[in-house]
Nucleic acid binder design. Structure first.
Lengths: 335, 335
DNA sequence: TACGAATGTGTGAACGTGCACACAGTAGGA
DNA sequence: TCCTACTGTGTGCACGTTCACACATTCGTA
């Protein structure tokens, strides 16, 4: 193992400028410094090529000015979820404004879990934004034990931890209601990810909107929010109820798959069957016909989560209730 | 600003176990320790709830066991590029095996550039993987000035820095050649991102394959690798040359857009027009018909870049020539 | 007996930073 | 004149860790 080359420190600056370390520190961090001393030190800084050592600063200050963005289940997140990129960019923008560095950590294997837990607890970050946490994930335990300032995107796994999310129940209910208002009689749902709260909540919203018309037979359960699941789910629904005339898909990707299955079966959309999705992702506009769907404010989710962490960093005790962002319904041609 | 709560240190362990700091350190890092002392210390560790302080360790060791994954231009990267997720996961897997933490940094604004440069130079990371670098990006300057062990995914912006990529020229040439072998006469290209080397190289490969049949008129230039650009590009080509019977799209997303424009124009694929893409992303299989395309080994690109950094961390001087990964052609139905 | 090697433990220093404190000089008001 | 306030600078210590070194004990062997 080779050690990195030695770099200039405040001592070197002080020696080059003919002052003491303290004065250099005051130039860097503010304080009473004479004009001559300041000029000499600033010249010395560029001369010796000084870059501050974050590790030393973090050790002394107990602050790293960095916030982790922890992506659990990144495999499905990065490959299927259309929102993760926007959430990250939203969080980064908010942290950037507060001069904090966002560092994304990916937890894929058990090995990752342990290492990330060490990383979070080791003083390299001041707080964490956690996406896609499942209840009882080991990372959550680490965060609450360390009392690390944190915010969750999505439903809170522990009631005491702050989070930001969307009202999956209400949104699902609203878009289903609008589908029904169009005069549809036999309306089904392709429900996905029923091991996640988002999946469960969307199903709950659907049930609520359907009321007495709800028929458990007309719910096709699929594992993931992806295109392939949509194709399979729609085929299953068509086999079960050929007279189906409306479908709420738990995601846009599923809806796109459903359109494909409907095309196979020779049904027209929205003529024979109305289809609505969820997410307002790139899928929605590229489908034929474009999807009516629920808009997810992904960027805002990211920036709100970042704000939640930043506020804790400033000593505020966060509102434990969490925060739900509005989700406008986008009406296009598919229903 | 509230300070985080005080946490247990090696001193606390030593006090609890009735030994000295040195012995605790030997338990943690290896060395001669008696069985009793070891047992007492291990009990004390769990008792006081000790977690090592990375900042202090990094300061002393001049090693953080972390490698940065720097995403430049994340806006287009995270929203348009289908490969970035796989590249990240590949890099993370390789780093994870070597017990290194991957930390992703996003550079979107000028403010980010400066902060990330500080972060990279501050001792929080031992090396960096850089994706989507443009020549003369300020980050590149920082990396080469600091002599930070680094690897680039994509073409090298400086010839002296190691990189891993694919042979864009050769791949574009190969798939165009196979398109021509099918008997197509009037073959065009939708070329994108001509300010990036990948975009330029794919165009060069196309020209080479076309040889004397190359007609600059039949190249539609579009800004990005996305769906919308594909629709516009194909419309332009159709307007220019209604008899066009083959198209090489610079990405799968563009190819998908081209299919849409062809459907609008009432052309059948692959009957009237053959279409090939690039990337082998999720677009390729969800299109109707599925796309013939060039497979990008995204996961391998990530893991190779990680290896390149890890090897430098172990003192090897890297092969400055870079490394090109094979890109198999996937033949489906679109041509 | 004496010596070196192997095993086990404690102490001091250092990594680079920021801050509390001490100290010096000047100015202003009671 | 003395006390206080303000400006400017230097010194020592602490953050939590690792490592070199010193020291102690046991054992095998010349």
């Amino acid at each position: 193992m080779s050690r990195p080359p030695k770099r200039a420190t405040v001592h070197d600056i002080a020696a080059a400028a003919g002052v003491s370390r303290g004065t250099v520190s005051r130039v860097l961090n503010g304080g009473y410094v004479s004009a001559e001393a300041r000029a000499a030190i600033e010249a010395a800084i560029t001369e010796v090529g000084y870059v501050p050592n974050n590790a030393a600063r973090a050790l002394k200050m107990r602050r790293s000015q960095a916030v982790a963005f922890v992506a659990l289940e990144p495999h499905s997140l990065f490959l299927d979820d259309p929102n993760i990129g926007s959430i990250m960019l939203g969080a980064n923008a908010a942290l950037s404004l507060a001069d904090h560095q966002m560092v994304s950590l990916v937890v894929e294997s058990a090995r990752d879990t342990e290492r990330v837990a060490r990383y979070l607890s080791g003083g390299f970050v001041d707080g964490a934004i956690v996406v896609s946490a499942r209840t009882r994930d080991p990372i959550i335990k680490v965060i609450s034990e360390l009392a690390l300032p944190a915010a969750f995107v999505g439903h809170p796994p522990e009631l005491s931890l702050p989070f930001v999310g969307i009202d999956n129940v209400g949104s699902a209910q609203a878009i289903t209601a609008r589908l029904l208002a169009g005069g549809r009689r036999r309306v089904g749902m392709i429900a996905a990810a029923l091991d996640r709260d988002s999946g469960i909540d969307r199903l709950t919203g659907f049930k609520t909107a359907m009321g007495t018309a709800y028929d458990a037979e007309l719910v096709a359960e699929v594992p993931h929010y992806d295109y392939g699941s949509g194709v399979k789910g729609m085929r299953a629904l068509l086999a079960l109820e050929p007279a189906i005339d409306g479908v709420f898909a738990a995601s846009d990707a599923i809806a796109a798959g459903a359109l494909e299955a409907l095309r196979e079966a020779g049904r027209s959309v929205p003529g024979d069957v109305g289809v609505v999705g969820f997410d307002d992702s790139t899928w929605a506009v590229r489908c034929q016909p474009p999807l009516s769907t629920v808009h997810q404010p992904a960027k805002e989710l990211g920036s709100c989560a970042a704000q939640l962490v930043l506020r804790q960093l400033q000593g505020e005790t966060p509102d434990p209730g969490g925060q739900l962002l509005p989700t406008p319904i986008i009406w296009r041609d598919s229903a």
